[in-house]
Design a protein around this nucleic acid. Structure first.
Lengths: 229, 229
DNA sequence: TCAAAAGTGTTCTAGATACACCCATGT
DNA sequence: ACATGGGTGTATCTAGAACACTTTTGA
């Protein structure tokens, strides 16, 4: 029956773990740290931490992302709560996983050094502690699903980017080649990119025009439901 | 820095709350209880409970669903972890919400009585305690998204169902009318329904053929990605 | 015989796919 | 001059949307 007092119930440690995605121009990558405390100290791990008394999970995730990257206002989203009894070898800990997207050039190298953090291509990750491999796999699937209908790919790129860069990003996320003409036609037809009068000249002699994402234009079309790719 | 001992950290009550969907032939409904304990005793609420030491969240949700419906092996899925500091007025409690789909004819009336449970059309719910309204809203959105690409609508129907029943179900979930000819053509073209040599004669003189979902056929086509509607 | 729901095809439109050549520029 | 990556258009195919009449049968 339903007569219950809160007092009688078990309390549990609640953690947050973050899958941090970046894009280096050709590969989708994840930022992984060497775990700094026991158990499993020194092994590869997602960045995480326990939820504090005065913060919710979103705030905890933002704090943890800030600790590792020095960045605020990172795009992030709750992924899934991992609750298996023995998922952590030291105690019953449930972990709410978040995935985050950052521009790989923006993070603090200083902080990354302190945490012994490294970027790995998403398909070449070393084995991670606990159930963190499962978290990464789930995050990758969610990213693939989400990026098809929401304008979040831009979070992985600099403010200014070229269409070839954007195409490479989608190709890395979907792990499939895309047709250049079809891609540019579709993405431009959405009417949410503004072309700049400026070219990126690093990667080709001819140079490729820069574009920026126009969130105002995107906001106006929202209601129709947006299919990106 | 990352030197941390688990001991130092705050432990939290972790609950599970279940959004239980049913379908009465014309409306998508949710099963709601009168909360049987303080705080907010006597108010409308989702069915929930605390996670026990020896179970994960899926097991807790299955247990809670069994307590209210008497059913086992219910289709259910984790929805989201709700973690706001003051979401529960009595204590810091995080709640992992699950949504579940059942055949509305199968639940135990006896157990429902004991919990003072009632079915409400999803758009005519009374106000619920805490953040349960938010949970229901999120569950409804997830159901709409999920049912478009996964064969889960059948969970809300009896084993044998007619095409008009199935169409009504999709119309209730999407809250939009569908064209009968387009609907039947599309759903039958998936090749995952088996037509029975038997008619449902309650709702029309002519009678409508029964169909059953063929999960083996569905399993074989999985890889291609399935768009239901 | 009629009321009420089941069943059934065709046309049109829009979006997705497939596909190849010229352009600009630094070396 | 040439090598490298950037930029562009058309034809075909497929899936989705729109749309109305006939069939069955119990009362």
């Amino acid at each position: 029956m339903n007569i219950t007092s809160y007092k009688a119930h078990q309390r549990t440690l609640v953690a947050v773990d973050c899958i941090i995605f970046g894009f280096d121009g050709s590969d989708l990558q994840a930022l992984i740290i060497k775990r700094g405390f026991e158990p499993e100290k020194g092994k590869w791990s997602l960045m995480g931490g326990f939820i504090r008394e005065k913060e919710n999970a979103d705030e905890a995730a933002a704090r943890i992302l800030y600790q590792l990257t020095g960045l605020e206002n990172i795009y992030m989203e709750q992924l899934y709560a991992f609750t298996d009894i023995n998922r952590d070898s030291a105690a019953r800990v449930i972990s709410i996983a978040y995935f985050a997207l950052i521009n790989i050039r923006d993070y603090s190298e200083q902080l990354a050094l302190e945490h012994e953090a490294h970027w790995f291509p998403i398909n070449e990750l070393p084995p991670l502690v606990f159930d963190h491999d499962k978290m990464v796999a789930k995050a990758k699937r969610l990213l693939q699903r989400k990026v098809a209908t929401h304008p979040i790919g831009f979070e992985l790129l600099p403010e200014k980017f070229t269409l070839p860069q954007l195409q490479s990003l989608y190709e890395a996320i979907y792990e499939t080649p895309l047709d250049k003409r079809n891609f540019t036609r579709k993405i431009l037809s959405l009417g949410i990119l503004n072309k700049l009068n400026e070219k990126e000249k690093e990667s080709s002699r001819r140079g490729a025009y820069y574009y920026v994402f126009d969130s105002v234009k995107y906001g106006k079309m929202q209601s129709n439901g947006v299919k990106f790719i």
